[in-house]
Design a protein around this nucleic acid. Structure first.
Lengths: 228, 228
DNA sequence: CGGCGGCTTGATCGGTCTCAAGTACGGTGG
DNA sequence: CCACCGTACTTGAGACCGATCAAGCCGCCG
């Protein structure tokens, strides 16, 4: 239950006054956040936006990592997704954010006003298509996440490691930005089960674990087989 | 594991030769399936489309009920969603269906070529927005489904009944179109656990169960409290 | 009436959670 | 440089929830 320390190294409000850079808007929608966005920084565990707040901005991770989450009725936290450099998050169809978002560690993001993109999409069908396409990819991602949650602990952890390997570096050696608690809340497990499963995978020669956040995939075949 | 009988009462191919009605195309995108679509019928358990097949058509349920699903690596079936009269399904961003779809019982659907809608969206931004909006609602639905899967059996069943009550009739008396196996595969439980949980809810006065598919919500407060 | 599929109920097993210590690591201050 | 502390992580023992295996029941249709 939210063991994490609630230190917010950057005071946040929704005027987002701490923008540090601004480039001239040229054209394009979501794919052109680079050219029309402002850059912002958030410290570790800083809240970027909260569930239910107006979805005024769309974000793209430049460096660092972000988690989105919901607090369930019984106090547990379910993480909806991890967003790594290059990933876009915070784009909603409706007026409000469905999940909260926090920086996992220090993060730099590009920010664009949602209204700017939506306005563009009203004139430029190509932009509208990009919005649709983005939400479609997000849908696919959540569908896969859903499928994860009906598997065994071993399968969930194995799938998670394969996913992170692909997204972080594409190689077998990965440096996890998130804590065991984050992983547990993403996979719908407890921190103890995640930890135990990791050591189990080590003893099965499937992974190496030189340090708790540094993981080496030794036998992706075994991991993939677990995946189903 | 797929106890269901594989009887396909309607032979299906992708030319969809068994269209029974055609109306003149007037205008509008996804909201205008009515005016530009053909009507089709599928018998109980008939396959409407398969995972990985080209997503040539978009469907809207007129009568009956549809399930989408995936078969997991270990042979289990996970149901992605139930689609009831008025619901649209089968609309993909990419070229292929991500899930398979079957009629739960006899079903009548309206069908439109995906390409027709997409072509419209390239010229009419309002149509493009409708596509985005639809996929956004689907995303929200899947997110909620994901949240279901990390709850207790009681919570899952209670949430399911509340959802069905809202979508089927809006009243407290519901007639489920799907079997216990379907419900189990939707909730990530076994058929036995679903059954036991139902009788448990009966003994707690939360629901009435005059027959296995006919359910009366007696105490929605209790159900909602379970929901979290 | 018999048979079959869908549903319920019972007994036991097993995987994950819970509660509780113990360990490793990084930072801070003496 | 080391002692200390706090946090993150690991490990262990036992409880509990849902899965599994196995019967039995019910409704429907031939």
């Amino acid at each position: 239950m939210l063991t994490q320390t609630e230190l917010r190294t950057v005071p946040v409000n929704h005027s987002h006054a701490n923008a540090v850079a601004r480039a001239a808007p040229i054209r394009g929608g979501i794919g052109a956040i680079e050219t029309m966005g402002s850059q912002m920084k958030f410290g570790a565990n800083a809240e970027i936006f909260g569930e239910g707040e107006p979805a005024e901005y769309v974000y793209k991770v430049v460096t660092g990592a972000v988690r989105t989450y919901k607090i369930l009725g019984d106090g547990r936290r379910q993480i909806g997704g991890f967003y790594l450099p290059g990933d876009i998050f915070g784009l909603e169809i409706g007026k409000e954010h469905q999940f909260s978002a926090e920086a996992i560690k220090g993060v730099t993001v590009l920010v664009v006003r949602r209204s700017a993109i939506v306005a563009l999409a009203e004139r430029d069908c190509e932009v509208a298509r990009e919005l649709w396409s983005f939400t479609g990819r997000e849908l696919k991602r959540v569908q896969e996440h859903m499928l994860l949650l009906v598997k065994s602990a071993q399968q969930r952890v194995a799938s998670f490691l394969l996913e992170m390997s692909k997204r972080l570096t594409g190689t077998d050696a990965i440096e996890l930005p998130m804590s065991r608690q984050d992983i547990a809340d993403y996979l719908g497990l407890t921190i103890e089960t995640v930890s135990r499963t990791m050591t189990q995978l080590v003893s099965e020669q499937a992974i190496g674990l030189p340090s708790s956040r540094h993981i080496v995939l030794r036998n992706t075949g075994v991991l993939r087989r677990l995946n189903g």
